[in-house]
Amino acid sequence: MWSEGTIGIPDAKDKDRYTVCHYWVKHYDEPSETYGINGGKISKLMIKVNGIITANYDRGWDVEPQDEPTRMAYSILLYQYN
């Protein structure tokens, strides 16, 4: 099943500002040791910040999360879908 949405990550320096992370996740009911992130249910994941792909997983990492907002959004998505 595909899920799409946005996550607002508060700015570390200015709590009134947010970084908007738009995401797409393909997840299944059962985990996959072969294709899932950390052997879990997510087989595909994309996170974009300001139109730029900041994380991409398609049965393996193409672009790993590097910046703090992307890592935080990734953690939230792992909790929610994996």
Rank of each mutant, 00 (worst) to 15 (best):
G5F: 06
I7S: 10
G8K: 11
G8E: 14
I9F: 06
I9P: 01
P10V: 03
P10I: 08
A12V: 10
K15V: 02
R17W: 08
T19A: 07
C21G: 07
C21T: 04
Y23F: 12
W24G: 08
V25S: 06
H27L: 01
H27Q: 05
Y28D: 14
Y28G: 10
D29F: 11
E30C: 12
E33T: 13
E33I: 12
T34R: 15
T34S: 12
Y35M: 03
Y35A: 08
G36Q: 08
G39K: 09
K41M: 09
I42T: 01
S43N: 11
M46Q: 13
K48D: 03
V49K: 14
I52Q: 12
I53Q: 11
T54A: 12
T54F: 08
T54H: 04
A55K: 11
N56G: 01
N56P: 08
Y57K: 00
D58P: 06
W61H: 03
W61A: 05
V63H: 04
E64F: 10
E68P: 00
E68Y: 07
T70Q: 05
T70L: 00
T70V: 11
R71S: 00
M72I: 15
A73N: 11
S75W: 06
L78D: 10
L78K: 13
Q80W: 05
N82C: 03
N82S: 02
